[in-house]
Simulated scan of single mutants.
Amino acid sequence: MIQTDHLTFQYKKKDTSFSFPDLTLKQNENLLILGKSGIGKTTLLHLIAGLLKPKHGTIRIDAIAINTLSNRQLDKFRGEKIGLVFQKNHAISSLSVLENLQARLYFSKHKIEPSAIDVLLKQLDLHKIQHHKAHQLSEGQLQRLGIASAIIHEPSLILADEPTSNLDDENCKIVIALLIAQAKKTKVNLIVITHDSRIKPFFQNVITL
């Protein structure tokens, strides 16, 4: 379960401040957050992920108020419980596709069967290039690797920042369907922020900032 209450945020040395609507998601509920650039979508996602601390308000994930955790506790919680799909590539360029996924599992201290990695690679059309280094991949392939890295450790919450921005229509549908299916399979929450209206039909819960 995800719940936010009275969240506000202000960047240092900037006059711009943000106030966000309260969110409540029960188990296995998904949410799409739409909005134009600069409206605070990524800021809200980073607050929920614990990458930023709110000026006011609380964020609860599975009844844990994450904004009260120490930095060390938060790093551990995020590594084990949250899957992040960033807009920009965060793959380790010197590692292969497969090695990037293995590294993610190692740092999250989560073990899965090797066959599960193969299934995920095939679902995201990365199987044939699993031994290619990350620096050899196209933007679309890197984005799909980022999605694989976010869900490989079966987190409690999946947060995706513009996961389809560099994808064509076919891969857009594949990626969103996979994120939703993974969330349903493991009975977790999925929150996607985007300006890509193509994915709106996939969600029942939609808010616009």
Rank of each mutant, 00 (worst) to 15 (best):
T16A: 05
L178Y: 00
S70R: 07
K53P: 03
I112A: 13
K122S: 15
K36L: 05
Q102C: 09
H90A: 07
L74C: 11
L145H: 10
L190C: 02
I176R: 02
D15N: 08
I129P: 10
Q141A: 11
R144S: 12
Q130G: 12
L126G: 10
H56P: 02
I66V: 11
T208P: 01
D125M: 03
I39H: 07
S70I: 06
K184L: 11
T16N: 02
P21V: 01
R104D: 11
L105D: 11
I193T: 06
Q27D: 09
I152N: 12
S108N: 12
T16I: 06
K53S: 14
L51R: 07
F18K: 01
S96M: 02
H56W: 01
I64R: 08
I199W: 00
L167G: 09
V192K: 03
I2C: 03
A116G: 03
Q10V: 01
Q10G: 10
G38V: 06
I33E: 07
I174E: 07
D22Y: 00
T68E: 15
N100I: 11
I174Y: 01
R78T: 13
K185C: 05
G40K: 02
H127V: 15
F107A: 09
F77S: 08
A148S: 11
D118C: 10
Q123Y: 02
D62E: 15
Q182N: 13
K88T: 14
I59C: 14
I117G: 14
N67D: 15
I152E: 13
V97T: 08
N67V: 09
P114H: 06
I112K: 09
T42R: 04
L52R: 07
K81E: 15
T42L: 06
K12G: 04
I147R: 05
K128R: 11
F107W: 09
K26V: 00
L145A: 11
I193C: 04
L159T: 07
K81P: 07
A183F: 03
T42G: 09
A177I: 00
K41F: 05
N89I: 07
G79I: 04
L95R: 06
F77D: 12
T43N: 06
L84C: 10
I151K: 10
I66L: 05
L32Q: 05
G40P: 05
P21Q: 06
A150K: 08
F86N: 14
Q136K: 08
F18T: 03
T208N: 02
L44W: 01
L145N: 12
